[in-house]
Write a protein that binds this DNA or RNA. Sequence first.
DNA 1: ACAATACTGTTGACAATTAACAGTTGACGT
DNA 2: ACGTCAACTGTTAATTGTCAACAGTATTGT
Lengths: 254, 254
Amino acid sequence: MPDNLTQSPNFSAIDFLRTRSLANVVQAEIERMIVDGELKPNERVNENGLSQQLGVSRGPIREACSALAAMGLIEIIPNRGFFIRALSNDEAQDLSEARAAVFGCMAMMLAERVTDAQIAILRALLQRMDEIVELGDYHVYYPVNLEFHKQIGEMAGNNRLHLIYQSFVRELHIQRYRALASQDVLKISNAEHREIVDALESRDPIRALTAGRAHILNGIVRTRNAGRPGETAASAPSKPARKSRTAPNATGKS
Amino acid sequence: MPDNLTQSPNFSAIDFLRTRSLANVVQAEIERMIVDGELKPNERVNENGLSQQLGVSRGPIREACSALAAMGLIEIIPNRGFFIRALSNDEAQDLSEARAAVFGCMAMMLAERVTDAQIAILRALLQRMDEIVELGDYHVYYPVNLEFHKQIGEMAGNNRLHLIYQSFVRELHIQRYRALASQDVLKISNAEHREIVDALESRDPIRALTAGRAHILNGIVRTRNAGRPGETAASAPSKPARKSRTAPNATGKS
DNA sequence: ACAATACTGTTGACAATTAACAGTTGACGT
DNA sequence: ACGTCAACTGTTAATTGTCAACAGTATTGT
């Protein structure tokens, strides 16, 4: 249970995250709650409850939710409130494909301008991942893998595209569409990484695009086969169905 | 001067736009103000002034700004407030390239699954644009051009990517990076459209990607040559230099 | 440098809307 | 005609949407 956020006399780590104000902290906290399952998909965000729980008034919470809604993580229903957005399987598929497309594009753009020094950096990461693959420890592999992707995004030189990509990754993460992997999968994954770097080194944009896109798409397939075919979408109640009297028969008095 | 939004006893068109609440209306209004130049880049959003001007309290305005900030149209500086985001030339370039990349991706994905019926629809639009080119009227051409791009986005079958693309277009529009075009430019533009459709018809993803991306990138070059090399970024003061309490009387308590 | 001031960040309270509950009416089957 | 059931209506509790006021911060003028 998170402590009171505002009036603690001596500041904790919260003061650190305070890039803007409470609204920002609240936003991060809500994202965390979604990741940790404290807020489930299709659930309403109870503003009173949250404000009480976080020791903050409703204003910052509403601001945070508005921002989250603009990012697509929260849905707004008029006079009903903010709802945690649940991705249907189709939407998750779209999101993953979009991620693949954007990543492919970044690889393509990078191939058009990559320097030898950058290649060297990527190869170094590649080697580190190779070593980790031998250990077969996914939890060590994952952050390096993330770093590899992030490097490509930054090297591609298009900040906007990179931001989009990062938001995709984060949203998929929040929605618990994460790859879990055996050693074999890690090996394949890194082989694809190598193909990407090779494509970059050959300065072949199309090849880089293809390799980058395929890498993400393959990851989707692997995730699916790994046995979580969309736990959020499948099990959740379909919609916040309002079962009031107005719905079924429009007899209506006039 | 817009009328009071809240307590009009008989509803006007406002009730129509009211998908959520005042915050939504305010958001749309702010976007309009940016487009119309009432809010200039790097200018601070005076919450008091706006609230007074719109007849709304500051709450909805802050929510709207939070959403806009999440979309990248507004920048937040702690304890200074919300600022209309100004795109530097580099950022505008990034944005345009990102748009080109995403559009190219959509074309590519469409090429992998396009039906003959869809091709026919695109060809029909193509022909209409051909006819308009003869007239040389940009203002007639533009909406059809928009429709063409939108169709491709929808046909590509990836909603998320399409949304991103639309937000790019809108942001560029808001930032006044609009193409103005002579008849020659229109002719070239539509020739590129035709190449895209040809690529789609040949079911060649790479060709479609290349054609789609090139079309947007060429558009950037054309816009630049047309003589507005970034009026917003070039002329604006580099950073929020608050010159004075320009809004003369924002506070007037009562 | 210091005081005045305008403005943001935040809060608590109020009004409006909604969903749920209980009570009533009407119809249908037995 | 009686009893059961379904649908409809009025009321209540809960929650959202909005506002006005307070406290803290950065900026301006002297």
